[in-house]
Design a protein around this nucleic acid. Structure first.
Lengths: 243, 243
DNA sequence: CGTCCACTTGACAGTACTCAAAACCTGTGG
DNA sequence: CCACAGGTTTTGAGTACTGTCAAGTGGACG
C-alpha cells in the first residue's frame, strides 16, 4: 500500500526513473533496466516548483534539461523588441530546455503554470552517458529531432490555419497528451491563461475567447473557466485537420 | 594553380572536408584535423543535383543528412490535407535532413532550387562517429538544438510580425548567410520563387509581390526578377526587428 | 516569334485586430 | 459571510491588413 502510494505521489522524494509511472513516455523509454539505473543516478529531483516560478530564464547559462513529472510548464522567448512568444506547453513526461544546447544559453524561459514536480538532468552528465550508451545517444537525437518536427508543425499551423483550426488543433493535442498518460481525453483543465493560448497560437486574447464561445455554441465543447470538455472530439479533429 | 582551382570548384570530385572552403561554417567546424579525416571518410559526394530534383521525399526511409556545397535547397512538408508548407531554405555550408531522425522517416521533402552540389552523410555512420568523438557528438547536438532555436524564431516571426517585417527578416537573413560565406551582403540572387517566399513566410504570392514593390518605392531595395540589392540594409534590419 | 509561366497590379472582401466596456472570478479583509 | 479590489475573460463596434479573384505584364525558352 505504501509502495503503491510512493509510485503515485509525484512529489515523493523516493520516486526514481525505474518506478516512475511516466517512464514509458519519458526519457527511460528506450532504455534497458540497467541503463535506467545509470540514468537515474544523474537525475535530480528537487522540491515542487510553485506556480509562476521559473525553471530557467532566457540567456542564463545552460546547465540542465528538465522533465516534467507533474503540473505544467510554459516556455516563452522574449524578442529584442520586448515582445513575448510562448513557444510551448510541457506536460508530465515531456522534456524541455533543449534549446539551450546550441548556444550554451537558454533561448527561452520556462515558467510553471501550476505547482509542478520536475526532474533536472545536468546536460554534461547526459552527454557523458550518451557517449557510453548508444541507445541513450540515439534516443536523445530522436528527442531533439522530434522537437524540430513539432516546431515545424506549429509553423504550418500558424502559416496556414484559421483561428478556429488553430484552437481546435491545440485542444486535440492536449487531449492526446492527456490520453497518453491514461487520463481523460475529453475532459481536462487548461493550466494556461487565454493570453498564453493566444500568444502560442498567434492570436489575440479576444479571438481565443470568441472562438471558445463559438465552439461551445456549436456543441463541440463545453467550457467553464479553465475546465474544458470536448463533446465532439471527432469534429474537433476534423477542424484541426487531424485525420 | 590547379590545386587552387580544385578548392574552388564546388563540383570537383576531389573536394574533401579538409580542403573545402566551407569547412569553417559547415560540419567540420568543431573538429580537429585528424577528426576531419574521419568525418571525410563517411561523406559521400555525388554528381550535381539538377534544379527541381529531390534529395529526399517526405515519408521515405531516413538514411542520410545532407550538407549543401553549392546551389540552394528548399525543404517543405505536405500536410494531411495536401497543403504544402516551405519549412526552410538551405544555402552552402548548411545541413538539412535532421528532421528524419525522430521517426526514421523524413518529415519533409528537399528539392534543389538551382543546380546544387551536395554532400551526403549516412546517419548511422555519423552516429557511430559521434559515439567515438565527443566533439562530434557535441557539435551534432548543437546543430539540432540550433535548428530548434531557428524554428522558434520563425514561429515568432509568423505569430507576431507583419508582412513587411517578415519579408525584411528574410532578406536580412539571406544577406547575413551570404556575408558569412564571404559574398556580398547587399546584392544577390534569390533562388526561390515568389510563391516559395510567400509560403515560407505565411503570406500569399500577391502580398509578397506588393511588399517588394513597396520596399523598392521606399528606396530600401531594388529588385529585378530574382536579383535583389539591399540599398538600405540598416532600415531593413530595423524593419525586421534585428538590432 | 509565340507560348507558357511567373510575377505584378487592381478592386473588393473577410478574418482577425484594436479599442472599449461590461461581466466574471479570486482572494482579501472587514 | 459578505463586500470589494484586481485581474482575467467575455462581448461589442469599428477598422485594417492581408487574402481572394481577376486581369494584365513581362521573361524565359523552345
Amino acid at each position: 500500500m505504501k509502495a503503491e502510494l510512493k509510485q503515485h505521489c509525484p512529489n515523493d522524494a523516493n520516486v526514481n526513473c525505474a518506478n516512475c509511472r511516466l517512464n514509458s513516455i519519458c526519457l527511460p523509454l528506450a532504455l534497458r533496466q540497467d541503463e535506467i539505473t545509470q540514468l537515474d543516478d544523474i537525475v535530480q529531483r528537487g522540491r515542487p516548483v510553485q506556480k509562476g516560478q521559473h525553471l530557467y530564464r532566457q540567456g542564463e547559462n545552460f546547465q540542465s534539461i528538465y522533465a516534467v513529472r507533474s503540473g505544467a510548464i510554459k516556455a516563452y522567448s522574449t524578442t529584442d523588441d520586448g515582445e513575448e512568444q510562448v513557444t510551448g506547453f510541457y506536460f508530465p513526461g515531456e522534456i524541455l530546455g533543449m534549446d539551450g544546447i546550441g548556444q550554451n544559453r537558454y533561448a527561452s524561459s520556462a515558467q510553471a503554470m501550476d505547482v509542478s514536480a520536475i526532474c533536472e538532468i545536468p546536460f554534461h552528465r547526459m552527454e557523458e552517458l550518451s557517449g557510453k550508451l548508444p541507445s541513450m545517444q540515439k534516443h536523445f537525437f530522436k528527442l531533439l529531432s522530434q522537437e524540430i518536427v513539432e516546431d515545424q508543425r506549429h509553423i504550418t499551423l500558424l502559416s496556414k490555419n484559421s483561428a478556429e483550426e488553430r484552437l481546435a488543433a491545440l485542444l486535440v493535442s492536449i487531449s492526446a497528451r492527456h490520453a497518453r498518460r491514461g487520463l481523460s481525453a475529453t475532459s481536462f483543465r487548461l493550466p494556461m491563461s487565454r493570453g498564453d493560448i493566444g500568444n502560442f497560437l498567434g492570436l489575440t486574447i479576444e479571438t481565443v475567447s470568441r472562438v471558445f464561445t463559438r465552439f461551445a455554441k456549436q456543441g463541440l465543447i463545453s467550457i467553464a473557466n479553465k475546465d474544458v470538455t470536448l463533446i465532439d472530439l471527432e469534429k474537433l479533429k476534423e477542424t484541426a485537420n487531424v485525420f
